[in-house]
Design a protein around this nucleic acid. Structure first.
Lengths: 225, 225
DNA sequence: CGACACCTTGAGTTAATTCAAACTAGGTGG
DNA sequence: CCACCTAGTTTGAATTAACTCAAGGTGTCG
């Protein structure tokens, strides 16, 4: 019903109708299913903007893969190609993911756009760090919140596909078993509303503060909440 | 004796003599002692380049402070001011720190310089994540290695001031007690060569691969090590 | 169907935490 | 100068959250 509201009054909650530019971009988007590899470290390619979903980034170093961060809707991924010509990290879809090409050469990127991306990367860094802080409950909650935030589009609650336990475990630095048990207990406490069983589960996530608020708060500007 | 070699053959190990520009920059550097606050989230100011030492970055959110990363010699800190006009994070010196002003406005930054900073931030992100991965021993080793790397200047071993246990604990996500015990055991195993007692201790750190190698390795280019 | 990847659950173990107390160096003020 | 205070560090004992190992359940795909 919340979604219905949004559909009837598209300007409510800060959701704007699609601009011509957005429609054009939509035409060239690429979609990936959960678990699919998006690109591999060392490959050539372009930078992407995540339109929808969450992406896991890993550093491939001496055979073993090391977690390098999570990117969500709105983030730019693969910007390293502008600098090095090749991807530094491997990207895999944590959920259904939609991407649009962002930029293929450094020259065509406006400085403002670069700075914006830069800010995004900083935020991603801090968010990724939060995924390794505190108890198992806190970490998993943080991850789900992060995934949900990018998908919220102004809604207060979002339904997100639960990533594979293996992914959650590697991202949070926990074991698969601990993740399984923690999710079970969160569900038992009523702290996690869940749909479906085993594979193909979805959870309802409070989307938290919008990104704009976040940023304002981050650099010390008072907001009138 | 390693240092002596370097002094006699300055081009060995990739260490170059100071350029005129470097000398000019040196004139306007600022120094901070261990534990000193460099700038505070919300303040206005300029971006800095870390010449020497290690800096701790924290997000100040609702009273509590959240670890946001470690910057070492070579990194740019406070670049957010170019975008937002104010610092997003609080910076504090983990060791003796020398800074030079980097840039005060977005317009005067060349795109290439921006991209360079981008690479630095990405690396910082991965390094920070490594500080939260694995056992207490591994995390603390990682932190000391990171601090040492920026100070190495081509030498294979560096002497670095041990940060306060409180800082180490907050950065690695451990408790002060665990850090104290772990350092004691590392020292006992001979894995950590240490000078001095209690406060004002220093440790010898293997500086690991140079930054250039790191970067090459990171994006899949084979090096002939 | 069988093979496989993924998820769940239990029991025992361990690394790290918590709580508590003592120790140390450095600074302050009488 | 000494007594005192404080922040930082060390150490011990008890506790616990998370890990390991092991086995069984469940869905998917060839």
């Amino acid at each position: 019903m919340d979604m219905h509201e949004t559909a009837v009054h598209p300007h409510a909650d800060g959701v704007r109708p699609l601009s011509l530019r957005a429609v054009a971009a939509l035409a060239s988007t690429e979609r990936f299913t959960r678990g699919r590899e998006i690109y591999c470290a060392g490959d050539e390619g372009v930078a992407w903007r995540v339109c929808l979903g969450a992406v896991r980034l890993d550093q491939q170093i001496e055979g073993e893969t090391r977690f390098a961060g999570v990117a969500v809707a709105g983030d730019i991924i693969g910007a390293e190609v502008l600098m090095f010509g090749r991807y530094t990290y491997t990207a895999r879809a944590l959920s259904e993911v939609t991407l649009e090409p962002w930029s293929s050469s450094m020259e065509e990127v406006a400085p403002g756009k670069l700075m914006h991306m830069l800010a995004g990367i900083e935020r991603r860094s801090v968010d990724s760090l939060a995924l390794r802080s505190g108890s198992a409950e806190r970490r998993i909650g943080q991850l789900l919140g992060l995934i949900g935030r990018g998908l919220a589009l102004g809604r207060s609650k979002v339904r997100v596909a639960l990533p594979a336990l293996r992914d959650i475990a590697e991202i949070t630095g926990l074991t698969i078993e601990t993740v399984s048990r923690t999710i079970k207990s969160l569900r038992g406490n009523g702290e996690l509303e869940m749909i479906g069983e085993r594979r193909a589960r979805e959870v309802w996530v409070e989307s938290g503060p919008a990104l704009a608020d976040d940023r304002a708060c981050a650099f010390g500007v008072k907001t009138d909440r």
